[in-house]
């Protein structure tokens, strides 16, 4: 009982030190609003319930509650989560850096706006013919000019939806892409804070996405002079149920 109380106090101290509970509120420019929050990934609820029931530990694992072995998905440290605002004012055309290293892309998954470009640097010894396919539409297809070894090339993403970027020369080279019109996305690690600053007042759709966990969507109203807080947790049970 004593140990349990000490553990809870430690958790509270950790929260306070991490600034999770008292992160500064963004101040939008006059006539504008903001959206901010924290995005986390989390293990399946049944897994957490079982772990907490057996060992009475904090579920986030950052106090050593759950030991995430190399074989496990380490949700508290999960990278490449995305917080995306579907912003009609956001035009595609942003450039995202990507490298081909051997049989892997430097980033395993990416959410971006339709019309954005990937600046692909080919560090491998092969010329790669990259192509993009749509998971849910066999006819959704886009191909690109070959990228010789040690060269760089921009490729544009003109499809929308859940996509996959592949190479004709190396089937193990693949990246999951989520593309949408007007998507303004921020790449995060689990527990990171996101901020969409200086938004015109109005209704917005917000999406939180990780390729293997799917997405959770919200509609929010942004008012002038206000900063709206929206925290979210991605987990299999939350996305599916």
């Amino acid at each position: 009982m004593m140990m349990k109380s000490i553990r809870h106090i430690l958790i509270l101290i950790m929260f306070a030190l991490s600034g999770f509970g008292c992160a500064s509120v963004p101040e939008p420019s006059p006539g504008k609003g903001a959206l901010y929050g924290t995005l986390k990934a989390q293990s399946h609820k049944e897994f957490l319930d079982k772990q907490s029931g057996e060992s009475d530990v904090g579920y986030d694992g950052f106090l050593g509650g759950i030991f995430y072995s190399e074989a496990m998905v380490n949700y508290p440290r999960l990278k490449n989560l995305y917080a995306c605002l579907m912003n009609p004012a956001h035009q595609g055309g942003a450039v995202h850096a990507l490298e081909i290293n051997g049989s892997e892309f430097s980033i395993k998954s990416m959410a971006l706006a339709k019309g954005d470009r990937l600046r692909v640097k080919n560090n491998s010894g092969l010329t790669h013919h990259l192509y993009l396919t749509d998971d849910n539409n066999e006819d959704g297809f886009q191909e690109y000019a070959p990228i010789p070894p040690q060269s760089e090339q921009d490729i544009s993403i003109n499809l929308e939806g859940d996509l996959e970027l592949n190479s004709e020369e190396d089937e193990s080279l693949r990246m999951h892409v989520h593309s949408g019109k007007g998507l303004d996305c921020q790449r995060l690690t689990s527990g990171d804070r996101y901020v969409f600053q200086d938004l015109a007042p109005g209704n917005y759709n917000v999406m939180f996405w990780f390729w293997r966990l799917g997405s959770i969507k919200h509609q929010v109203t942004i008012k002038a002079g206000q900063s709206r807080l929206l925290n979210e947790t991605l987990s299999v049970d939350r996305v599916i149920h």
């Binding site: 399946h44 897994f47 599916i240 149920h241």
Partner: peptide, 17 residues
């Protein structure tokens, strides 16, 4: 323990732990 789930649009499921 294992969990089995799919996000496939035609057959989405989560079988729990």
């Amino acid at each position: 323990d294992h969990n089995v789930y799919s996000l496939a649009k035609t057959n989405i499921f989560d079988l729990g732990l």
